[in-house]
Design a protein around this nucleic acid. Structure first.
Ligand SMILES: [Mn+2]
Ligand SMILES: [Mn+2]
Ligand SMILES: [Mn+2]
Ligand SMILES: [Mn+2]
Lengths: 219, 219
DNA sequence: TAAAAAATTTAGACGAGTCTAAAAAATTAT
DNA sequence: ATAATTTTTTAGACTCGTCTAAATTTTTTA
């Protein structure tokens, strides 16, 4: 049984480690959690005592098998709740993260099972992020940044990279980009990496290189 | 902004004071919260500093106007969530309390507004308990214990008194009593206060005096 | 109404989670 | 390869919510 705080740390470490594939430094965790490095050191000792991460002094932490499993359960809950908020309560995709950040800590396996059922076992959340199944298994197809697509091609929006700020999501809504939208790359500017796209064959817009790197599409 | 613990104390005090109509003793709160009297003393000082209760040393606490308002908000959330769990996720009425005890602390006015809407602005939870409206207003009709009804009368089940244990709810389900059921009082035993009832004109059962006091029906 | 009993508060301690300031180790730059 | 810089850990302190044990106040009983 993990405390709310332990759950938040574990999830952050999972994400920072790219799903457990690389080790994570104290300062990275501190940044991600908006705490001080000293607090992180204390917490990683606790998570390490619980065998959820391995901690080597001065060299950062690695997530264990069990840690990965636990993190995936929290992420599953987070994404199921986000999906619920959008699909059943008509929240916008830029309104769900903070609430899901709270809801993900509710302890009730039955609740999650029923929620999953109510939503028809969704495989992605409102931001296109995969929802791990009951066994922690994730199945995602290939996703590439819009910025890496060659001109003239038409692709479908699969997901968006959303850090903390919801302003990027609001911006996307404003210009007409959404999960499932069909984008045709019209032109790429060499000097600043910005691109011109056509959305659903209807609307022409320019997006910055920065933005194009955070819109993930079909290859 | 109240902590989860402060919210739980405030709600307990609200209930123990019968909605703010009487004062509450330290030991009563300790019992209800499964904590020690010393802990209650500490907490009532905090709630009192926040003007949610008035605290007179050695003589117990009284809830203030603001305290009542805050308590009703928590109770509203609790009962909306219970309703959601039963109506949308097919929980049984004996499975919802513990989960709602967690969900009631989620901070998001928008969420509650949308949930209320999804449920079509329900006025009672799965146990027949009134759901305060957005302004904290409760509207309940008259409810009397089944045990107080004269023989031969037919009444409708409006609510059940449910403390912590879900076993009473399971018992009621088993014998066929539910909110809205029509009960005819067939006979009352003088010596032990038990009564014989007919449920929906179909099923005859005996219920103890104890049980009959915790089933609330139309007058 | 004085003694006994019960209820309540105070005092002091503890774990969780956080912080600042100082010490230690690792990294980098010269 | 040594010095300067950056990162990380340790030490000590603080808040929140809890507890036990002792002191105090109220209530009951005789
Ligand atoms: Mn969270
Ligand atoms: Mn998401
Ligand atoms: Mn609660
Ligand atoms: Mn209820």
């Amino acid at each position: 049984m993990l405390s709310l705080t332990e759950e938040n740390y574990l999830k952050a470490i999972y994400h920072l480690s790219d799903g457990g594939t690389k080790s994570v430094l104290t300062n990275e965790v501190a940044d991600a959690m908006s705490t001080k490095p000293a607090s992180v050191t204390d917490m990683v000792k606790k998570l390490s005592a619980k065998k959820l991460i391995t901690y080597e002094k001065y060299y950062g932490v690695t997530i264990t098998k069990q840690g990965k499993t636990d993190a995936l359960t929290i992420i599953r809950k987070h994404r199921l709740w986000e999906t619920f908020l959008v699909q059943k309560l008509n929240f916008h995709w830029d309104q769900v993260h903070e609430v899901a950040e709270q809801l993900e800590h509710i302890q009730s396996p039955l609740l999650i099972e029923k929620l999953d059922e109510l939503l028809n076992f969704p495989i992605a959340d409102p931001h296109g992020h995969p929802i791990p199944d009951k066994n922690g298994k994730i199945h995602t197809g290939q996703q590439v940044p819009l910025g890496d697509i060659a001109a003239k091609k038409t692709v479908t929006v699969l997901a968006v990279n959303v850090k903390e700020s919801s302003s990027f999501l609001q911006y996307l809504s404003k210009i007409g980009v959404y999960i499932g939208a069909k984008l045709s790359i019209l032109d790429k500017a060499e000097f600043d990496g910005s691109i011109e796209i056509m959305i659903d064959g209807k609307k022409k817009v320019f997006v910055s290189k920065e933005a194009s790197q955070n819109i993930l599409v079909t290859p």
